[in-house]
Amino acid sequence: MHHDFDTIRRDLVERLSQAATDRRSAMHVPVVVTSDIGARVMVLREFDRDAYTLRFHTDTRAPKVAAVEADPRMAVLFYDKEAKIQIRAKGIARIERDTPLAQSAWDAGSNFARRCYLGDGPGTASPVPTSGLPQELEGVEPSEEDIVPARENFAILVVTIERLDWLYLAHTGHVRAVFDRSDEAWTGRWVSP
Protein backbone atom coordinates (compact mmCIF):
# COMPACT_ATOMS: atom_id res chain seq x y z
CA MET A 1 0.00 0.00 0.00
CA HIS A 2 2.74 2.49 0.93
CA HIS A 3 5.44 1.46 -1.48
CA ASP A 4 4.96 3.60 -4.58
CA PHE A 5 4.91 7.35 -5.11
CA ASP A 6 1.58 7.48 -6.99
CA THR A 7 -0.27 5.75 -4.15
CA ILE A 8 1.29 8.03 -1.57
CA ARG A 9 0.55 11.19 -3.58
CA ARG A 10 -3.10 10.11 -3.89
CA ASP A 11 -3.15 9.43 -0.14
CA LEU A 12 -1.74 12.91 0.57
CA VAL A 13 -4.33 14.60 -1.63
CA GLU A 14 -7.24 12.64 -0.15
CA ARG A 15 -6.13 13.24 3.44
CA LEU A 16 -5.67 17.00 2.92
CA SER A 17 -8.98 17.25 1.05
CA GLN A 18 -10.80 15.43 3.84
CA ALA A 19 -9.04 17.52 6.50
CA ALA A 20 -10.47 20.68 4.97
CA THR A 21 -14.04 19.42 4.69
CA ASP A 22 -14.52 17.07 7.65
CA ARG A 23 -14.43 18.63 11.12
CA ARG A 24 -13.93 15.16 12.61
CA SER A 25 -10.81 14.50 10.55
CA ALA A 26 -7.73 14.09 12.72
CA MET A 27 -5.96 16.47 10.33
CA HIS A 28 -8.61 19.24 10.42
CA VAL A 29 -6.64 21.34 12.91
CA PRO A 30 -2.94 21.15 12.01
CA VAL A 31 -0.05 22.95 13.68
CA VAL A 32 0.95 25.98 11.60
CA VAL A 33 4.47 27.35 12.04
CA THR A 34 5.65 30.73 10.80
CA SER A 35 9.28 31.59 10.05
CA ASP A 36 9.63 33.31 13.45
CA ILE A 37 9.07 29.82 14.95
CA GLY A 38 5.65 30.83 16.21
CA ALA A 39 3.45 27.73 16.25
CA ARG A 40 -0.31 27.49 16.66
CA VAL A 41 -3.18 25.16 15.86
CA MET A 42 -5.43 26.48 13.09
CA VAL A 43 -8.52 25.18 11.30
CA LEU A 44 -7.83 24.12 7.73
CA ARG A 45 -10.58 25.76 5.66
CA GLU A 46 -9.62 24.58 2.18
CA PHE A 47 -7.13 22.46 0.30
CA ASP A 48 -6.94 23.21 -3.42
CA ARG A 49 -5.82 19.92 -4.94
CA ASP A 50 -4.96 21.54 -8.29
CA ALA A 51 -2.88 24.45 -6.97
CA TYR A 52 -1.67 22.59 -3.85
CA THR A 53 -2.63 25.45 -1.56
CA LEU A 54 -3.91 25.42 2.01
CA ARG A 55 -6.28 28.15 3.22
CA PHE A 56 -6.77 29.33 6.78
CA HIS A 57 -8.63 32.31 8.28
CA THR A 58 -6.79 34.84 10.43
CA ASP A 59 -7.15 38.15 12.21
CA THR A 60 -5.11 40.89 10.50
CA ARG A 61 -3.95 42.02 13.96
CA ALA A 62 -2.47 38.62 14.85
CA PRO A 63 1.33 38.44 15.21
CA LYS A 64 1.48 35.68 12.58
CA VAL A 65 0.33 38.17 9.92
CA ALA A 66 3.37 40.39 10.49
CA ALA A 67 5.60 37.30 10.61
CA VAL A 68 4.28 36.04 7.25
CA GLU A 69 4.62 39.45 5.65
CA ALA A 70 8.23 39.73 6.89
CA ASP A 71 9.19 36.19 5.82
CA PRO A 72 6.61 34.06 3.97
CA ARG A 73 8.23 30.66 4.60
CA MET A 74 5.88 28.38 6.53
CA ALA A 75 5.42 24.82 7.66
CA VAL A 76 2.20 22.98 8.47
CA LEU A 77 2.15 19.73 10.46
CA PHE A 78 -0.73 17.25 10.18
CA TYR A 79 -1.00 14.03 12.19
CA ASP A 80 -3.51 11.20 12.21
CA LYS A 81 -2.77 9.04 15.25
CA GLU A 82 -5.16 6.26 14.25
CA ALA A 83 -3.78 5.96 10.71
CA LYS A 84 -0.21 6.54 11.95
CA ILE A 85 0.35 9.09 9.19
CA GLN A 86 2.23 12.36 9.58
CA ILE A 87 2.27 14.97 6.83
CA ARG A 88 4.62 17.93 6.90
CA ALA A 89 3.97 20.62 4.33
CA LYS A 90 6.44 23.43 3.65
CA GLY A 91 5.66 26.37 1.47
CA ILE A 92 5.33 30.05 0.85
CA ALA A 93 2.47 31.94 2.48
CA ARG A 94 0.61 35.10 1.67
CA ILE A 95 -2.00 37.15 3.49
CA GLU A 96 -5.03 38.24 1.47
CA ARG A 97 -7.26 40.96 2.87
CA ASP A 98 -9.27 42.55 0.07
CA THR A 99 -9.14 39.96 -2.68
CA PRO A 100 -12.09 38.10 -4.21
CA LEU A 101 -10.93 34.91 -2.43
CA ALA A 102 -10.84 36.66 0.95
CA GLN A 103 -14.26 38.20 0.34
CA SER A 104 -15.69 34.84 -0.69
CA ALA A 105 -14.34 33.25 2.51
CA TRP A 106 -15.86 36.10 4.57
CA ASP A 107 -19.22 35.78 2.81
CA ALA A 108 -19.30 32.01 3.46
CA GLY A 109 -18.99 32.47 7.23
CA SER A 110 -21.82 32.84 9.72
CA ASN A 111 -22.18 35.98 11.80
CA PHE A 112 -21.52 33.85 14.86
CA ALA A 113 -18.11 32.87 13.43
CA ARG A 114 -17.38 36.38 12.13
CA ARG A 115 -17.89 37.91 15.56
CA CYS A 116 -14.40 36.72 16.53
CA TYR A 117 -13.05 39.59 14.44
CA LEU A 118 -14.98 42.16 16.51
CA GLY A 119 -12.99 41.49 19.67
CA ASP A 120 -9.67 42.75 20.89
CA GLY A 121 -6.71 41.86 18.70
CA PRO A 122 -5.04 38.50 19.40
CA GLY A 123 -2.56 38.79 22.26
CA THR A 124 -4.16 41.88 23.82
CA ALA A 125 -3.43 41.87 27.57
CA SER A 126 -6.32 41.69 30.04
CA PRO A 127 -6.43 41.80 33.86
CA VAL A 128 -9.12 39.06 33.85
CA PRO A 129 -9.85 35.94 31.75
CA THR A 130 -11.51 37.13 28.54
CA SER A 131 -12.64 36.11 25.08
CA GLY A 132 -11.83 39.64 23.97
CA LEU A 133 -15.36 40.03 22.59
CA PRO A 134 -17.55 42.98 23.48
CA GLN A 135 -19.69 42.00 26.50
CA GLU A 136 -22.95 42.31 24.54
CA LEU A 137 -21.76 39.70 22.02
CA GLU A 138 -20.68 36.98 24.45
CA GLY A 139 -22.64 33.89 23.36
CA VAL A 140 -24.77 35.94 20.96
CA GLU A 141 -24.89 35.93 17.18
CA PRO A 142 -24.44 39.53 15.99
CA SER A 143 -26.70 41.18 13.44
CA GLU A 144 -25.56 42.06 9.92
CA GLU A 145 -25.14 45.64 11.07
CA ASP A 146 -23.10 44.63 14.14
CA ILE A 147 -20.70 42.58 12.06
CA VAL A 148 -19.70 45.27 9.53
CA PRO A 149 -16.64 46.56 11.46
CA ALA A 150 -15.28 43.01 11.82
CA ARG A 151 -14.50 42.67 8.11
CA GLU A 152 -11.46 44.96 8.31
CA ASN A 153 -9.85 42.53 10.79
CA PHE A 154 -10.44 39.44 8.65
CA ALA A 155 -7.94 37.97 6.21
CA ILE A 156 -7.02 34.62 4.78
CA LEU A 157 -3.67 32.91 5.02
CA VAL A 158 -2.85 30.93 1.89
CA VAL A 159 0.11 28.56 1.83
CA THR A 160 1.40 27.37 -1.54
CA ILE A 161 2.97 24.00 -0.84
CA GLU A 162 6.49 23.44 -2.20
CA ARG A 163 7.37 20.27 -0.27
CA LEU A 164 5.32 17.43 1.18
CA ASP A 165 6.90 15.00 3.64
CA TRP A 166 4.79 11.87 4.25
CA LEU A 167 5.63 9.50 7.10
CA TYR A 168 3.91 6.21 7.91
CA LEU A 169 4.70 4.89 11.38
CA ALA A 170 4.73 1.10 11.63
CA HIS A 171 6.17 -1.37 14.12
CA THR A 172 7.60 -3.32 11.19
CA GLY A 173 9.49 -0.22 10.02
CA HIS A 174 8.49 3.33 9.22
CA VAL A 175 8.20 4.46 5.59
CA ARG A 176 8.89 8.04 4.52
CA ALA A 177 8.59 9.80 1.17
CA VAL A 178 9.35 13.42 0.33
CA PHE A 179 7.86 15.22 -2.66
CA ASP A 180 9.37 18.45 -4.00
CA ARG A 181 7.62 20.79 -6.39
CA SER A 182 9.36 22.35 -9.36
CA ASP A 183 6.98 24.54 -11.33
CA GLU A 184 3.91 22.28 -11.54
CA ALA A 185 5.77 18.95 -11.44
CA TRP A 186 6.32 16.90 -8.28
CA THR A 187 9.33 14.66 -7.76
CA GLY A 188 9.26 11.99 -5.07
CA ARG A 189 12.14 10.38 -3.23
CA TRP A 190 12.42 7.85 -0.45
CA VAL A 191 14.23 8.96 2.71
CA SER A 192 15.06 7.29 6.00
CA PRO A 193 12.53 8.06 8.68
Rank of each mutant, 00 (worst) to 15 (best):
G132A: 00
S25M: 03
A93D: 02
L44E: 12
R115F: 07
I87M: 10
D80V: 06
D71F: 04
A93P: 01
R40N: 12
A125V: 07
K64F: 01
P72N: 09
S110T: 15
A70N: 14
I92K: 10
V41P: 07
V128T: 13
T34N: 05
D48G: 10
A113P: 01
A83V: 01
P100M: 05
T34F: 01
V13S: 09
P100T: 03
V33M: 14
Q86S: 09
A102K: 08
E82Q: 14
A89Y: 06
M74E: 08
T58F: 13
A105Q: 11
H57L: 07
C116K: 11
G121M: 09
G121R: 04
S131L: 12
R115A: 12
E82C: 05
V41H: 15
A26L: 12
T53W: 01
E96F: 09
L77Y: 13
G132D: 00
A62R: 01
R24M: 13
G109S: 15
A20C: 02
Q86I: 05
T60D: 04
A51S: 08
D11C: 11
V13P: 00
D59G: 11
A70S: 15
N111M: 07
D120W: 11
A125F: 10
N111E: 05
A26R: 13
I95L: 12
A20Y: 01
S131M: 09
V13Y: 00
R88H: 13
L101N: 08
V29D: 12
K90V: 09
R45K: 15
M27Y: 04
R15H: 13
Q18N: 15
K81R: 15
I87A: 06
K90L: 13
V13K: 10
R55D: 14
